[in-house]
């Protein structure tokens, strides 16, 4: 009888629609870094994460968060998806929300770049701007308050605590890296923000081969310019962060990332964001220490949403 009950339940329109973007999420190219003085037996690759629906690595997490919430019945027709975001996750929610007919409300620090705010407005997001000084930590607190005042109107996605975030990378980014390197990856290196990318990808790679070394990166100081990254000593630590995943923890300065942005543009033809450049800086530093190996990192997004930084660097 149980089987009959399941069969007779009609699938909601949202459930039907929720898989329609499957083939446009993830599956990003693995780009070989070739012109930055890397030894012959050391290979450095970066996944070009902006080459997917929504324009950044965050589409993976946002899509999985939405799909899982629909499946659990927590995100239903007419409910607003609510979260705090520094930009890219919000933009990913907005693209997916528009495509699936899900209204999106976002808490965003008011000093988010104009490009980001314009994109979100174009995608019809209900924006709640929070104070400049408070950063995403305050935006998170405001999002929580909005949810608690009216829980029936919102699905609070909470990317910082939502396990769907890291699971997206466990199920997609990790397997893609193995496949694209012909199972040769020896090191995975990436920055920490929500920590979903590093935690999910790292856990997957370790299940394949314990010897793959995982290097986590964070900004060198609290007042950094690496949008999307968290300085864990001074910021709220995301609930999904698992400090046992990283074999090594290193830091990158904003100045080093900015120099690497210039190198990537001039030597590799890649216009990448500060956080992508910080990942590349960490990967190049590691490459210089190795005699052989296959290093993989990610470029979360390109430079198109960082006009202020590129204007300053490429005068």
């Amino acid at each position: 009888m149980k089987t009959l009950d399941i069969i007779s339940q009609p699938e909601s329109p949202l459930t039907k629609k929720s898989t329609k973007l499957d083939s446009f999420v993830g599956n990003t190219p693995l780009y070989p870094i070739q012109n930055l003085d890397i030894k012959e037996d050391v290979k450095v690759f970066a996944k070009l994460e902006w080459q997917q629906f929504g324009g950044s690595v965050k589409t993976r997490a946002a899509y999985r968060i939405i799909q899982d919430a629909i499946e659990r019945g927590e995100l239903t027709e007419g409910k607003h998806l609510l979260d705090a975001s520094s930009g890219n996750t919000g933009i990913a929610y907005a693209h997916i929300g528009a495509a699936l007919g899900i209204p999106v409300t976002l808490c965003l620090p008011e000093n988010a770049s104009e490009e980001r705010k314009q994109i979100l407005r174009s995608l019809d997001v209900n924006l709640k701007l929070t104070s400049r000084a408070g950063g995403t930590d305050e935006a998170q607190e405001v999002a929580k308050e909005i949810y608690e005042q009216n829980p029936s109107q919102y699905y609070y996605a909470d990317q910082y605590s939502n396990p769907s975030n890291w699971k997206a990378h466990y199920d997609t980014t990790g397997p893609e890296i193995l496949d694209q390197t012909n199972y040769d990856v020896t090191h995975f290196i990436a920055g920490l923000g929500t920590t979903g990318t590093f935690t999910g990808t790292g856990r997957f790679l370790k299940t394949y081969k314990q010897e793959i070394e995982l290097i986590a990166l964070q900004p060198d100081i609290a007042m950094h310019g690496l949008e999307g990254w968290k300085h864990l000593e001074t910021a709220h630590t995301p609930a999904i962060f698992d400090d046992s995943v990283a074999d090594v923890m290193q830091t990158v300065s904003t100045e080093e990332a900015h120099e690497t942005m210039k190198l990537a543009a001039q030597k590799e033809g890649l216009l990448i964001s500060p956080s992508s450049a910080a990942n590349l800086a960490g990967a190049l530093r590691l490459a210089r220490q190795l005699e052989e190996g296959t290093i993989v990192t990610l470029f979360p997004d390109d430079s198109s949403k960082y006009g202020e930084v590129t204007n300053q660097l490429f005068k």
Binding site: K58, S86, N88, A133, G191
Partner: peptide, 11 residues
């Protein structure tokens, strides 16, 4: 006077 850093988030 406000001193404003980059926005932490994200990856």
């Amino acid at each position: 006077v406000s001193i404003v850093p980059a926005i932490a988030g994200g990856c």
